[in-house]
Amino acid sequence: MSVGEDAARWTAVCRFEDLTPERGVAALVDGTQVAVFRTHDDRLFALGNQDPFSGAWVLSRGIVGTRTSRPTVASPMHKQVFDLCTGECLDDHGVAVPVYGVRVREGTVEVSAVEVNGT
């Protein structure tokens, strides 16, 4: 279940066209580092920016791709792959990163730093 829209505080982080397809950016939202990704089909995803394996806050700099049909990002550190939809690590079951809300309003990308359960 995602958090109701009213409960989420949305923070504008950039224009949609500022995002390069199949890359991520980091945003600082209410003190939380959020990695925002734009996939090839122009969908947006937001995960926690910290790589849980190295501790470095770098997930936004990973390579975006697919595994089977899932959109993914690979950690730039040691290449563990995370599901962009659910935050789950597909290489190490049981490991996951937070998933955050992200949306586009009138061309502006907005992020909610309230954690969403990945489903």
């Binding site: 980091a26 945003a27 600082l28």
Partner: peptide, 15 residues
């Protein structure tokens, strides 16, 4: 692209 944060380009990564 050479920014720590897209919404705070001059803020260093606090970590």
């Amino acid at each position: 692209r050479f920014v720590s944060f897209v919404n705070a380009p001059d803020t260093p990564d606090p970590s």
